[in-house]
Amino acid sequence: MVTVSMTVNGRQVSKEVEDRRLLVDFLREDLGLTGTHVGCDTSQCGACVVHLDGKAVKSCTMLAAQADGASVKTIEGLADGAELHPLQAAFKEHHGLQCGFCTPGMIMSGADIIARHGSDLDEATVRLELEGNICRCTGYHNIVKAILAAAGEMGGGMKQAAE
């Protein structure tokens, strides 16, 4: 067993867990933050994406112990109180989700993409950057549209809409 302490969505947490505990299981089962999902076991689908010290990572592919001392943000911590993050709002407005299972990972990845690319974001870049996130429902069309719209909203600029 190992004691892990980290900041999750701005809250300091500390728990004793098995050394083999994955970060995603720590979030879902030890902290009850079930918005982060598990869709595969080979690190490809991206349903488990969270931000670790501000960067998008796959929480299924690291141990909780590796995140000891880090700051983690999950989908539950993205909105500012009752106010949705612009990306959350854009996913709703542009119908960027259907079954909702990949959505938390998509939104966390989308936020990371916007943070890294800012005003350089265009449709081709968004599509390439979504390499690590699989959606089976939407054909990505409206996800791409939502990320571009949110980038525009957030002042990142929007060179080209996904129409």
Binding site: S43, G46, V49, L52, K55, A56, V57, K58, T61, M62, S109, D112, I113, R116, E129, E131, G132, N133
Partner: peptide
């Protein structure tokens, strides 16, 4: 290499 999340780790 890989995808953005892989490149972060």
């Amino acid at each position: 290499i890989g995808d953005a999340q892989v490149r972060h780790r």
